Computed example of a mutant assay.
Amino acid sequence: MPIEVNGNSIETDEEGYLVNLSDWSEDVANEIAKGENVDMTENHWEVVNFLRSYYDEYQIAPAVRVLTKAIGKQLGEEKGNSKYLYELFPYGPAKQACKIAGLPKPTGCV
Rank of each mutant, 00 (worst) to 15 (best):
Y54C: 05
G76S: 06
F50A: 08
R65E: 15
P90M: 09
I60L: 13
I71A: 03
Y55H: 13
T68C: 04
Y86G: 06
N43A: 15
V48N: 01
E78R: 06
K73A: 08
V47D: 00
G72K: 09
L75Y: 07
L85W: 02
G72W: 08
E78D: 11
K79M: 07
L51D: 01
E78T: 07
L51F: 02
A63R: 14
E42K: 13
Y55C: 09
I71N: 03
A61T: 01
E87Q: 14
A70K: 14
E57P: 03
R52C: 09
E46Q: 11
T41N: 02
I60R: 14
E77W: 01
E78I: 05
S82V: 13
Y54N: 05
E42S: 14
R52D: 09
D56L: 14
E57G: 03
Y54A: 06
E46I: 02
N81I: 05
F50L: 07
D56P: 07
K83Q: 12
S82M: 11
V47W: 00
Y84N: 08
Y58P: 05
R52L: 12
G72P: 11
V64L: 10
L85E: 05
G76V: 04
L67P: 04
W45V: 01
H44C: 00
E87R: 13
Y86F: 15
E57K: 15
D56C: 10
F89K: 05
N81L: 05
T41V: 02
R65G: 14
L85S: 04
I71F: 04
S53N: 11
Y84L: 06
T68Y: 02
A70Y: 07
Q74P: 02
E78V: 05
G72S: 11
E57Y: 10
K69W: 12
P62A: 01
F50P: 10
M40D: 02
R52Y: 12
Y58R: 11
G76T: 02
V48L: 03
M40E: 02
I71V: 13
Q59F: 07
P62F: 00
A61G: 02
G80D: 09
